[in-house]
Amino acid sequence: MSLSYRARVVALLEESPLTAEAVTTDVRHLLSHGEEALAFDTMCSWIYEDALPITRLYTLDWWQWRTRWTPRGPSSALTSC
């Protein structure tokens, strides 16, 4: 996966409402191993499961990025958020 996807997931992570160090560490670990889709899915899952508030701007930013990203085949990362 290209660096631009990794950079985008990192930017979304930094802008996200996730504060649990264990979660952000897991996401960064996945990114360091080239698992951008799984890292993205992990972020989405924690935001959803913890019912974390997100701003309208964050939602718009996420949605614009999501609609441009077409990984290999169907991905739960694209449907879980």
Score class of each variant (00 low, 15 high):
Met1Ala: 13
Met1Lys: 08
Ser2Ala: 10
Ser2Gln: 10
Ser4Val: 13
Ser4Gly: 14
Tyr5Val: 08
Tyr5Thr: 08
Tyr5His: 02
Arg6Gly: 04
Arg6Met: 12
Arg8Tyr: 00
Val9Asn: 00
Val9Glu: 02
Val10Pro: 00
Val10Glu: 02
Ala11Cys: 01
Ala11Met: 00
Leu12Asp: 01
Glu14Pro: 07
Glu15Lys: 04
Glu15Ile: 03
Ser16Asp: 03
Thr19Arg: 11
Glu21Gln: 05
Glu21Leu: 14
Ala22Arg: 14
Ala22His: 13
Val23Lys: 07
Thr25Arg: 05
Thr25Gln: 07
Asp26Cys: 09
Asp26Asn: 05
Val27Met: 01
Arg28Ser: 07
Arg28Cys: 07
His29Val: 12
Leu30Arg: 02
Leu31Thr: 05
His33Lys: 15
Gly34Pro: 03
Glu35Gly: 12
Ala37His: 08
Ala37Ser: 10
Ala37Cys: 07
Ala39Met: 01
Phe40Ala: 06
Asp41Thr: 05
Asp41Phe: 09
Thr42Trp: 03
Thr42Lys: 06
Cys44Val: 11
Cys44Glu: 03
Ser45His: 13
Ser45Ile: 14
Ser45Phe: 15
Trp46Asn: 01
Trp46Gln: 09
Glu49Phe: 13
Glu49Val: 15
Asp50Gly: 02
Leu52Asp: 00
Pro53Val: 07
Pro53Glu: 09
Ile54Gln: 02
Thr55Ser: 15
Arg56Asn: 09
Tyr58Val: 04
Tyr58Thr: 03
Thr59Phe: 14
Leu60Tyr: 10
Trp62Tyr: 04
Trp62Leu: 12
Trp63Ser: 10
Trp63Gln: 11
Gln64Trp: 15
Trp65Phe: 13
Arg66Ser: 04
Thr67Tyr: 06
Thr67Gly: 03
Trp69Tyr: 08
Thr70Gln: 13
Pro71His: 06
Pro71Asp: 06
Arg72Pro: 08
Arg72Lys: 11
Arg72Met: 05
Ser75Val: 13
Ser75Ile: 14
Leu78Ser: 00
Leu78Trp: 07
Ser80Met: 08
Cys81Glu: 09
